[in-house]
Design a binder for these strands. Structure first.
Lengths: 233, 233
DNA sequence: AAACAAGCAAGCATGCTTGCATGTATTTAT
DNA sequence: ATAAATACATGCAAGCATGCTTGCTTGTTT
């Protein structure tokens, strides 16, 4: 199937054998199935919503049997809490993809400098940055996350995890947005301005859930890019 | 065991009395049950989400039996599509409650029982208007609407109705927002500015779903009220 | 006052989802 | 190569939600 793409530190619950077996599935097929189940879970979440994403549906989409899914994730909660982490990781990847170069590196990049590093290769100019940020909230990943949020708001098992996810990804998004926009957060109001922009992006993504009015979205984005330009100087 | 049920009159009588306390034992009882089911449906939607809002739960909350619910709404779809209309009506009422009763606009419609409005008869000043608009997206009504949207995005039966609802309420919200803000839509960009503001409000309401960070919300609202003031002149 | 219709409550049948148990195949270790 | 363990597939029972049918209470009509 796919190559060895060791991204997730798998935590399958298998007990160490007596003869010094290292933890983790040694078989590539297992990892592939694991990953495929996660991807299928996210895709189903975006397409069929929470209630419609039964383990049977997810397993079928993943191309495996329901028993296989159960083998990897004993309960439904386990499957989707794992999917939560997967979504967070994917969104972070998509986020960092906005960086053509510059400060990157997995996990690190805590540079809170602020007013430097605006002009980059891929995304240049405030309007383009705003458009790129909004685009983050129009794809299937945000769709899945949205379904996850709504479901988590009423599922006690999911809520803490999804809340933590949202906080983490939200912080990262804000940080990257500040950098890309070249905003100086030491100036009063700038932080709230960027936050409001991201909230608007969220709102646009929410509106996009039912009717994909790209025209309206583009106009709003263009106008707010102007307002942002004036606000940030 | 008990063969024929000859002494099963006490319990129904009690329930009937409770139902009768609403209004006079007339044909109005049917309407009362009808309305109570709708309110219960909306409340359950906000509290338990779509999947958690079974007809049993809704009926129990409404204080009627599941059979009664079925009598009024033969199918679950009927119940919640009716709830859709109810939500739209309630949101419109909450919207019109923002009018200080002096501005133009079609229809007076004084509040016949203010829902969860901000409780200010007259909203004066741009910051107050923005805050009032955002407050529209933090209450249980928006919560119910949000669950409805997400559910409708994957339910073929609901989607057209909820889409129509959103369009209608969205237009009304926009119109009222323009009036309250004293914005001149003939000026290019003003329309998109207001739309972006409402999208931001939606985004804030969405974020409010998981974590009710009123402080952050207030700060964002305050900042963007300033920006809006500058943009609208 | 009696008959009729409507609102309402309870029971039953069906379909679906979850979780567990059993069986089979592929892989790893001795 | 044999044996053990893991990965996977299939079958089964329990729980729940929906929809339908039946029976009882309440209100209207003649």
């Amino acid at each position: 199937m796919d190559g060895v793409s060791d991204t997730a530190t798998a935590e399958p619950r298998l007990k160490a054998a007596r003869a010094g077996q290292e933890r983790g599935p040694k078989q590539d097929r297992s990892r592939a199935t694991h990953r495929r189940l996660l991807e299928a879970a996210v895709a189903c979440l975006a397409e069929h919503g929470w209630a419609g994403s039964t383990v049977s549906v997810v397993a079928e989409r993943a191309g495996v049997s329901r028993g296989a899914a159960q083998h990897h994730f004993p309960t439904r909660e386990d499957l989707f809490t794992a999917a939560v982490e997967y979504v967070a990781e994917e969104r972070s990847v998509a986020l960092r993809a906005l960086f053509p170069e510059g400060a990157e590196g997995a996990g690190g990049a805590e540079g809170a400098g602020g007013a430097e590093g605006a002009g980059n290769g891929g995304v240049t100019g405030r309007p383009a940055v705003v458009a790129a940020l909004v685009d983050l909230y129009t794809g299937p990943l945000f769709r899945a996350a949205l379904h996850l949020w709504v479901a988590a708001s009423n599922e006690d098992q999911l809520r803490p995890r999804v809340t933590e996810l949202e906080a983490r990804v939200g912080r990262e998004t804000h940080r990257i947005a500040v950098e890309l926009l070249g905003a100086d957060e030491s100036v009063p109001g700038v932080r709230e301005t960027v936050q409001g922009l991201l909230d608007m992006a969220r709102g646009l993504g929410l509106a996009n859930l039912l009717t994909d009015d790209a025209g309206r979205r583009d106009r709003v984005v263009a106008q707010w890019a102007v307002l942002l330009d004036e606000a940030l100087g």
